[in-house]
Every structure is written in structure tokens, then in C-alpha cells.
Amino acid sequence: MNPVYQSVLTTPIGTVRILANDTAITRIDFVDDDGPSTLAENAVTLQAETQLREYFAGQRQTFELPLVPAGTAFQQRCWQALVQIPYGETRYYAEQAQLIQRPSAVRAVGAANGANPISIVVPCHRVIGKSGQLTGYAGGLDRKAWLLALERDAVTAGQ
């Protein structure tokens, strides 16, 4: 088993935990701040921490991190489609299903998005309901709305 490393980052919308093996990020999620960790940081978690700080400061729109999310082949396809959504834009679940050439798998795409282990960097927050309303986000709808507003405001300011 590969060693596990961890960085913890305080953000405007809560504490983010970054987990990695020796070479890649395995998980990024929101956690309750439950005190110090016994896990050490490594170069990969520190790189992710730096890039996430830049993202939250409105200075980064794309991430350049090695990722190895654990999931089924279908989930992997869904997550690859997520990273194709441009910063500041949103897609519908049906559009994501079309992108992976499974147009009838809208609910399965939604479930795969919900199982995304690498929040923010694999931007499942950019997928919304067809009516335009915010739907499902493992980090909570308030965080999803905040992330979308951050990106929208950065794009608007850059125009």
C-alpha cells in the first residue's frame, strides 16, 4: 500500500483536506476541523495546497496536478468530462451524459459526480440541473453556489 500524505487548508468556505500518495492526489474534500493530523505533508499535497490558495484568491483558473482518483471506469469517464468544463461555465447533467456518449445515463452521471473524490480540482460544482438550479454537491449547495460565484466574478472582472 502506498503511503498517505495530507495537507489541510483553511478556505473561505471551510476546511479542505488534501490526500496524496507518493506521486499524485487521491482525494480533496471538505472536512470538519478536528484537530492536528498525524499524517505528514509531501511535495504533492503542498503543490495542491498552493494551487488551491491561488484558486480561492481568484488567481488560478486551471490546475496542474497529478491526479489518481479511485473509481469505476464509468466514473473515470464522467470525471474526465468534468475537467473539460471551462472555468466560470456550467453544464447540465444531460450535457455531461452526451459528452461521454451515454445520453440516457443522466442519473448515473449525477451519481458519478456525487462520488467524485477530488472536489474543486475535478469541478463537479460546475454541473447544474437543466432548469438552471443548483443540485447536489457533496460539499453542500452553499459551497457550490460560492464556488460558482467566485468563478463567475473572476471571469466578469477579466472581461
Rank of each mutant, 00 (worst) to 15 (best):
I120H: 01
K130C: 09
L65S: 02
I100H: 04
T90R: 14
E41T: 10
P123R: 08
R102A: 12
N116L: 04
R53C: 07
A94Q: 13
G114L: 13
Q101W: 10
Y93F: 14
I120G: 00
A43I: 08
A81E: 01
F63W: 02
T50S: 06
A105P: 01
Y55A: 03
P117Y: 05
Y87F: 12
S104R: 11
Q84Y: 13
P117K: 04
Q61S: 12
K130Q: 11
Y93L: 10
E41I: 08
V83E: 15
S131K: 14
G114R: 15
Q98G: 07
T72Q: 05
P66G: 11
V106K: 12
V106M: 09
F63D: 00
V109W: 10
Q98W: 15
Y92E: 07
A94G: 14
G129L: 10
R53I: 03
T72L: 08
S119Q: 14
T38V: 10
N113Q: 07
I85Q: 11
I100Q: 06
S119K: 11
Y92N: 14
A43T: 10
R126F: 01
E89N: 13
Q61W: 10
V68E: 13
L67G: 00
A115Y: 14
E95W: 13
V121I: 04
A81L: 02
E95P: 09
L99F: 12
Q47E: 10
V109C: 13
A43C: 14
V121W: 00
V68H: 13
A40C: 15
P86R: 10
A57V: 05
A112Q: 03
I120W: 00
A111V: 06
P117S: 07
G110P: 04
E54D: 15
E54S: 09
L52C: 02
V44D: 00
V109Q: 06
V83Q: 15
Q101A: 13
Q51I: 03
S119I: 02
T72I: 05
V44I: 06
S131N: 15
I85W: 09
G58T: 06
A115D: 08
L65P: 00
P117C: 05
V121G: 00
